[in-house]
Design a protein around this nucleic acid. Structure first.
Lengths: 246, 246
DNA sequence: TTTGGTTGTCTATAACAATAGACAAATAGG
DNA sequence: CCTATTTGTCTATTGTTATAGACAACCAAA
């Protein structure tokens, strides 16, 4: 595993040494050919390589064990827990479930929260609504093989898609829910991509540890006539997915 | 400015409180309508809002002043330094300079390093070369209005584009350099997008502070006959750009 | 010129992170 | 069954981060 990849760790940077080391080990694992099982070098060796005390390395490993990335066995060593990085394609026909087809067995989404609200400026603009219009806001969590992949906030025009929350709850799919509401097909028009530290809410929903990164996409979908029907902000666990633009 | 955006800050998470607060303030600013000047709430109020001591808030502010995001004036307050977030379009005709046209005045790229090497597996695969082939590796830094935006590592087939390093050095542009080497036009075939913490090298080149995030794109470009000519990994300062997928 | 609100600096203390060293407990291999 | 290697636990010490309170310096507006 290539841990030397990027310079030394830094002291009094606002990030503790154990967390920097944990991040380096995690991304070293993520960089590996997909889902390789393997053994981590002994703690003593890692401590020397990073130029820190063994206890500091142990703190980093403990955090990754907590996260489920590593597994330690007394007397034997510390091992990498197999986990694939998912590739999530973005294009005109972007859909969650079918996008991950073949990469994971159990793909499902479920509703965390829903409510009616006046849309934030961005959503209003994307949907072509006034800022005092009524929108339905859905918070959803998507998982693949039991691991949370992304949380998303969706806005829909309440006057056109009044029953979308119910439909999503029943079907567990935006595509199917839209179909039940009379939108047979739709297209992804625009996608903006950013990255930032995960907030507390996302940390919990995605089962991430503090300091983790989320990839944020903000997308507008339209029906086949070009009328906007959905505006979404999706936060992906950055160390579990690669976004792929065709 | 919406600082409440995402839950409480977390103690003994491996990230110091002042850094968490700095990150929250920075992204609160980034979320604002583009490049708004404005005043930060007083330190005492921020301390109360975040539930920490005023000195802790001061440490966060000091870090952001160091970064050039804020400016403090004794007796008056702390102010947001205007800075636009750039939107970088990704599509079949992705190019650095023209992509940012109209968003920034001075757009330029310069060569950090170049060398001949056997390509890493990913680059070899993308370029359709054997793993013992010779490639030219370019490290470049791109700036807009004097602010570093991205650093990139490019691989080219050495047998086809022997003079690419020189040509880039002269022209400061991949597009122009390729033209000098006989590639009149090219297309972006695939783009993979990830996000991670910036490594030490990228921190320095992009003038970021530790813990900062980079958006990583890995792209393959082909000539008009579909033959791969370039494989690149680009690291964008995540708080300065939005990637936009058409 | 006074007042209220703000940032800047100082001291002291408590909580946490990192180092150092020693040894126990489990495993794998000869 | 021994030995070398490895993870697990304990104690002690030092340096960094966060809290608490007090007050100085500066600014703007009454």
């Amino acid at each position: 595993m290539d841990l030397e990849h990027d310079g030394d760790i830094e002291r009094r940077s606002g990030v503790t040494l154990w967390r920097q080391i944990a991040d380096r080990i995690r991304s070293g694992i993520a960089r590996e050919p997909d889902g390789r099982e393997g053994r981590l070098p002994p703690e003593a060796e890692l401590a020397e390589r990073f130029g820190v005390n063994r206890h500091t390395v142990r703190a980093a490993i403990a955090a990754l064990v907590q996260e489920g990335v590593l597994r330690s066995e007394q007397g034997r060593g510390t091992f990498i827990v197999r986990r694939n990085r998912l590739t999530y394609p973005i294009g005109a026909r972007t859909r969650f479930a079918s996008g991950l087809e073949g990469q994971a067995e159990a793909r499902r989404s479920r509703l965390l929260r829903s409510r009616v609200e006046t849309p934030p400026p961005e959503a209003a603009k994307a949907l072509g609504l006034n800022s005092d219009a009524r929108t339905i806001r859905l918070e959803t969590l998507s998982e693949a093989d039991g691991t949370p992949v992304s949380v998303a906030t969706h806005w829909f025009d309440a006057s056109r898609l009044a029953d979308i929350a119910d439909a999503f709850k029943r079907t567990g799919s935006i595509t199917l829910a839209l179909r039940e509401c009379g939108v047979d097909d739709y297209l992804r028009r625009t996608t903006a991509i950013e990255a930032r530290h995960a907030g507390a809410g996302d940390l919990e929903a995605l089962k991430l540890s503090p300091g983790a990164i989320v990839l944020v996409t903000r997308a507008t979908n339209t029906d086949m006539d070009g009328a906007p029907i959905q505006y979404s902000e999706t936060r992906f666990a950055a160390d579990r997915v690669t976004l792929s633009v065709e």
